[in-house]
Design a protein around this nucleic acid. Structure first.
Lengths: 222, 222
DNA sequence: AGAAAAAAGAGAAAAAAATCTCTATTTCCA
DNA sequence: TGGAAATAGAGATTTTTTTCTCTTTTTTCT
């Protein structure tokens, strides 16, 4: 169950994990309270924006003091659904897939990958970072029987659409898709794309801008 | 050099890679022209929005016909800087780092990781997917000497800040940061966060919404 | 050839998000 | 005890992004 079922703007929701990370580090340092001014400085965000984001989660602060770090962490983790993790299946035990399986982080962030699947016979039966790799054929049945609603998709592009359909067949409701394709699935299925390439695009552009600032070579010939 | 140095909205820029992926698949099927209506249908976007995005890149279409697939791919790849890849260094040859190194995709998306670095003696000297792993100490010098401006950061949280500073020391201008911390660096350095957890947050929330739609159990007791 | 359909492109409108302004509260300090 | 400073929180404004509307162009069909 996810807390405070109210409507939150998508950009706000995306910023929340960053707040939790920062707050956890504060807690480690023994800091008791924090202001949105301080959070904003650390995360390079406008304090008002931070305040608005926090307000969406139901958190409350006190003037002149700020928010209690401990309480705020709890409220945010509750809101994000990190306090009772959701079970997920992962398909594609390749490089990226294994990396995600080995990523302890996920479990602290609300996601528990309880089984992996692959079509490659050599991989089936293996144990990747403590998670059993099963034959992809078994996915629909197991997903339905175990009530798993989340699928992580780390297969090559060519296989992505087909695997996604198997997931849907098994009652999966949301897919975290790391393949660079737009999956064609029923309207009701939520697909979160990995956006690796979107991020890379932004990175390259910004870099290019920075480089050409340093080297103003092209003098804009008219 | 990146094409059409004009200003493009960030959301538009992020959508461009998706267009290229779709266009490439069309090209494989031998499709010669495509309309924004068709692109929108495939990627679940408003056709007008697709048109606006494409306009930013300088692409031109023809009424009643659409855009020439071949030309559009070239224009977009040019705009994204995918035609002459940028060199990058990666630090942290752990699970995620190796996964990225093994990811052929990056080179087709404008990024060429030419060397990896790690502080762990056991990893230094190894060869991960064809990329040599060097001692982190050598990064600043090599970056400066080779004119590398992009750094990919896949180290554990605790090391992230320190490694990022070494990168900056070596003249790195942009960092792709996969550690869940907000790096404190000079203003001019661009940091693109991996946003894994931001995506996960959205995924979990949407899933929760979908599940509670199916099971309207909590009748909102007043 | 002329009418109809499909789509680009430009501009306007609407929606969403970020930022700014102001007020009220709380704490610290003199 | 009173004033000053810092900050939450609410509301207004601005900016950005998305969506809608209309016009023009091109192609196809009769």
């Amino acid at each position: 169950m996810i807390g405070h079922s109210a409507k939150i703007p998508l950009p706000s929701l995306k910023r929340l994990p960053g707040y939790v990370h920062f707050l956890r580090s504060l807690k480690c340092e023994g800091v008791a309270t924090v202001s949105t001014t301080a959070i904003g400085r650390a995360l390079r965000l406008d304090p008002t924006q931070v305040r608005k984001d926090l307000a969406c989660t139901g958190a409350e602060g006190r003037p002149r003091v700020g928010y209690r770090v401990d309480d705020l962490i709890v409220v945010l983790e509750e809101f994000l659904g990190w306090r009772n993790v959701s079970e997920a299946f992962l398909v594609g035990a390749g490089h990226l897939g294994s990396a995600l399986l080995g990523y302890e982080g996920l479990r602290n962030h609300g996601l528990d990958v309880i089984a992996a699947f692959d079509s490659h016979p050599a991989k089936v039966g293996q144990d990747v970072h403590g998670v059993k790799v099963l034959d992809i054929e078994r996915l629909p049945g197991l997903a339905r029987r175990m009530g798993v609603h989340i699928g992580v998709l780390t297969v090559p592009v060519d296989a992505a659409q087909e695997v996604a359909e198997r997931m849907v067949e098994g009652g999966i409701l949301s897919i975290w898709n790391f393949a660079p394709v737009s999956l064609q699935l029923p309207e009701k299925i939520f697909v979160q794309n990995g956006e690796l390439y979107a991020q890379l695009a932004v990175l390259l552009r910004r870099t290019e801008e920075a480089v050409s600032r340093k080297t103003p070579s092209t003098p804009e010939v008219a």
